[in-house]
Nucleic acid binder design. Structure first.
Lengths: 124, 124
DNA sequence: ATGCCTGCAAAAAGTTTGCACTAAA
DNA sequence: TTTAGTGCAAACTTTTTGCAGGCAT
């Protein structure tokens, strides 16, 4: 629990959604905190199970708080044009995963799943 | 249809699975073809609908052939330790996607989905 | 001759690492 | 005093871009 770590957590608490290290530095932390430090903190917070790393397939790592309310994780529906992000609560992949455990024998199965589309506002 | 493009397609035809640009250069193309050229070709082949780009969440773009047999796309189950890749044929997300179109109004919805686990050989 | 493809080199973007300094337990 | 976190700078990785030359239509 350090000042930088606190700033990161506060930022992510107040602003819902996955943000990149650069987002966090530029948008939420006015003081000139170093990107390297932010990366190091994001990494350790993820390892501690406090943050979750999202993959949108553009080579940028984004993080968001692990929501303690849902033990059920969620995914995102991202607009390709305006980058707006909606939360997708349900995840119906659990049966599939149980099937992998039986059929393929894999253990500790996790998954990444994100949806992309064009939102109503951008369809003009 | 150029020599480099042909080499890339032959490589991906003979070797099933998603490969990165570097994989393709080092493992399949003995001649010293430039990485920049390979990247350019992978990009245009993807735009042409011949290759598909996979995201494993490690910041490396991997490509594989779009299988003309399945109009139904597939996903992957990747071992975290030995990196072995198994193909997951079924994708039961279509109903979810139709739901997005109705509920959120998003159009042209696509998704990325990959599974990670520990394969039987690596569970010792 | 025009246009696309290529190789080379350099640059860009995101992330990681080394090191010395500081603050905290 | 020992440990862990920070800022700065530099390195590293993956990918992109600029440019000049080459091949093919």
């Amino acid at each position: 629990i350090t000042p930088t770590r606190k700033l990161i957590l506060e930022s992510l608490l107040k602003n819902h959604g996955p943000f990149s290290a650069e987002d966090i530095q530029k948008r939420f932390i006015k003081k000139d905190h170093d990107l390297a430090t932010i990366y190091r903190n994001l990494q350790s917070l993820e390892e501690a199970g406090i943050l979750h790393r999202c993959e949108f397939g553009d080579g940028i790592a984004r993080y968001e708080l692990v929501d303690p309310d849902h033990d059920h994780h969620h995914h995102h529906l991202i607009c390709r044009k305006c980058k707006k992000i909606e939360v997708v609560d349900a995840c119906e992949l659990e049966p599939t995963i149980h099937q992998f455990v039986k059929k393929h024998g894999f253990a500790d199965v996790s998954h990444i799943l994100e949806f992309f589309g064009v939102c109503p506002d951008c369809q003009g």
